[in-house]
């Protein structure tokens, strides 16, 4: 247990250190020709804090499968005779996962650090129908909603490209109970200036693979 905690602390320290490096980056360009060597040193302009809004869609993940796919075993166990009769001569359509949608807002006050929140909504659909008339008898859809405070660490920051990781603590409901879960973006990349697209790989409530679009804008007027 202690080893895992130490490893987690090391990873966190690595994220922060890389972020700090990204924050204090200076650029050195060496220009040469056959006769002269000229070194040009440029400083990155002062960072302006930004608002970052993203909408994305994610695939399944272990917690979303648990929330959205109840399985036959749980549904049919211990049903009494009256319930069996009520469900007789009916059938259930296939259960389909229709996506895991996220809306994220973060505030970026340093190059390497963003913090904010994510709301994720996932759903799977299934219906019980009459075997003769095919009319819907019961709605067996399942939904899941999670609210997650999010911290994102950029470990490569350019105006047009960012590589990052993120962690979130998730408060999840399947509209039947309330659970505590989590989400981690192991690797994420964003391309674009104001409007941008992003793709991520991670674990947790947002799915194994996520992609989407976003918009970021300065929180304060740019200083000249």
């Amino acid at each position: 247990m202690r080893k895992i905690r130490n490893l987690a602390m090391m990873l966190l320290a690595l994220f922060v250190a890389q972020g700090v490096v990204a924050q204090s980056r200076t650029s050195s360009v060496v220009v040469t020709d056959s006769m002269t060597i000229k070194t040009v040193v440029t400083r990155i302009p002062k960072f302006t804090p930004k608002h970052d809004i993203r909408v994305g869609v994610g695939t399944l993940s272990l917690p979303t499968i648990l929330m959205l796919d109840e399985g036959d075993y749980y549904e049919d166990v211990d049903r009494n005779f009256a319930d069996q009769m009520a469900n007789a001569d009916t059938y259930r359509t296939a259960r389909r996962f229709i996506g895991n949608y996220t809306l994220t807002y973060t505030y970026q006050d340093r190059r390497w650090l963003q913090y904010g929140g994510t709301v994720a909504f996932g759903a799977s659909t299934r219906k019980r129908k009459d075997i003769h008339t095919h009319k819907e008898i019961e709605n067996l859809d399942r939904y899941m909603l999670s609210v997650m405070p999010t911290v994102r660490f950029s470990w490569f920051y350019r105006e047009r490209v960012q590589l990052y990781s993120a962690v979130s603590v998730a408060l999840v409901t399947d509209f039947d109970g309330l659970y505590l879960w989590g989400d981690a973006t192991l690797f994420g990349c964003a391309f674009g200036r104001k409007f941008f697209g992003f793709a991520e790989f991670g674990v947790g409530m947002s799915g194994w693979c996520r992609a989407g679009i976003g918009y970021k804008f300065n929180a304060v007027k740019k200083q000249k």
């Binding site: 001569d89 799977s124 679009i213």
Partner: peptide
């Protein structure tokens, strides 16, 4: 933006998978 849209679309299509098959009534 087109490539971003395509990535999002592909992800959505991948997401719309079948978790459980339909019953044989």
């Amino acid at each position: 933006y087109f490539s971003i849209l395509m990535v999002a679309l592909a992800t959505t299509l991948l997401s719309a998978c079948e978790l459980e098959s339909a019953d044989i009534g």
